[in-house]
Design a protein around this nucleic acid. Sequence first.
RNA 1: GGACCUGUGGUGCAGCUAGGAGUGCACGCCGGCCUGUCAAGCCGGAGGUCGCGGGUUCAAAUCCCGUCAGGUCCGCCA
Length: 573
Amino acid sequence: MRTGRCGELTLDDVGSHVRLCGWVARRREHGEHLAFVDLRDSTGVIQCVVEGSVELRSEYVIAVSGVVRRRPEGMENPALTTGAVEIGDCTVEVLATAEPPPFLVDDRAEVDEAVRLRHRYVDLRRPRMQRNLRLRAAVVRAIRAAMDAQGFCEVETPLLWAPTPEGAREFAVPSRLHRGDFYVLPQSPQIAKQLLMVGGFDRYYQIAKCLRDEDLRADRQFEFTQLDMEASFVTQEDVLGFVSEAVLDAAQAVTGERPPPIERMTWEEALDRFGTDKPDLRIAAELVDLGEVFAGTEVRAFGGPCVKALRVTGGGTMSRSRLDTLVERAKALGAKGLAWFRVVDADGASALESPLTRAMSEGEREGLLAKTGAVPGDLVLAVSDEHRSACTVLGQLRIEVLGRPVGEGPHRYVWVVEFPMFESIGADGHPVAAHHPFTMPHPEDLDRMATDPLSVRSQAYDLVLNGWELGSGSVRIHRADIQARVFAALGISDEEAESRFGFLMGAFRYGAPPHAGFAFGVDRLVAIFAGEESIREVIAFPKTQSGADPLTGAPKPLSASSLAELGLRIAAR
RNA sequence: GGACCUGUGGUGCAGCUAGGAGUGCACGCCGGCCUGUCAAGCCGGAGGUCGCGGGUUCAAAUCCCGUCAGGUCCGCCA
């Protein structure tokens, strides 16, 4: 039907007869003797010259036959990749007419996202979406190649799975044949892949759809795609290597450059230096510990067990009302308060401006300046609280005040390792699992599981890129005795373990190899590669924040007959 | 469950603080002119439930209450 594609024509093609197909991007008519038609396909736009008049409208689908020729001197268009050439002596055939599109098919037109989604098929024609989805395809291709090269076998796992309440809400699917019973859509193939390990597939991976019925965000959709992998007879170190290889290969495939080896830090270090378990290393500023400076201080605001500070370079010009907003923000984040210090120049020396300075000793003022390295024109924010709270509050302010770069700067990957086994003590007095209950505790910490659970580290790890959690994984428990101790620590009874995970525990009785795995979000990785703020921009047909699809109208009521067949009745609201 | 922002011809905005006739801008659309344009240009024209409902008022796009939709975030996401 066509001899080539619009965006691929260059001066090398001059003289060749071509037939091209695509959409009418723009047209410029000069009376009945001359018209320019910009023809667009997935590769780009080319100018077609018609000697005569045309009966075309925007977005008509046409086939153009003509001869590639060099544009006349001075008529080149550097804005087009094909701007050196044009198609001359064109004859045009209309393949399909089109109503005027709801918005301009051009990246320069800013369009409300609801309108874009309602007419996604038009939006997808725009270069941005073409670029993003093709980038996504390239990333997935590279990941598959990397996993294949490392000896992994792709295995599909069921979408219709058994309810195994694990944390995230599950989507339920009613069964017609077993009226009153339900399948659920998997939050992840977690248990399935552990069964594959028992089944002898010692290196498994899958580009898997995962479904979670939780509220949506810019980086969260009901359904999302993960590279899911698991391997037997491996250590944590092996897994980090496998995943690094896949991610760095993907980066190389789309940027042409291989990033340096991924750096690593412990969870404790990430919290202490950046106030978060997903540090954005593009932001240079780190949290500073002022514990020594304010040891035994008279200042009540700094009497907490920990004092942390953040230097805001150039923040000294911030208005009082802006600072008040920051104080409120810190309180909303859970801090008891937020101290601020403007650093000013006083006869060539640095001095502090703050409601607190009067109560501070000379040594405290000097110590604060020395430790933070702040100079006149800077701002210093400080929080005194429990270590974790002080760090997380300042960690959040670090992002909000210093600003997270979007789509700029280098890609800063980091492995965060040695996550705590338990994240807090729950209302029932038992610790709450930070990862999932199959996570292997750190061998050195096993003895403290019953006595001091919050100090127990796990063999769980996250991969973080530019402040986004790309994914997480862990070494799994394959020994029944350790699993029993973890269930006991979590307060999960034998009966409960049996009913929730019985089939997995049963499988483990038949010879479970030591295994470990990982899963990371493909949507997030692609969004960062594409410089997009939302994963919706790298998904062909995403849902809105309320979980609706403006194009199809989903979700919708089911017909009465369908409900009856499934044995369902809708309760009154 | 909660906080904040947004909603005005097909698209993007202004108008709202301080109420006075659907007022304005750009793009698109329709018609006309135009033989080298390129987000073509020039002339003319059409197109509106100011998201929806209620209230205040002589009078509401504008003020108040509610509601719906979209977005950002908190909760939630083992």
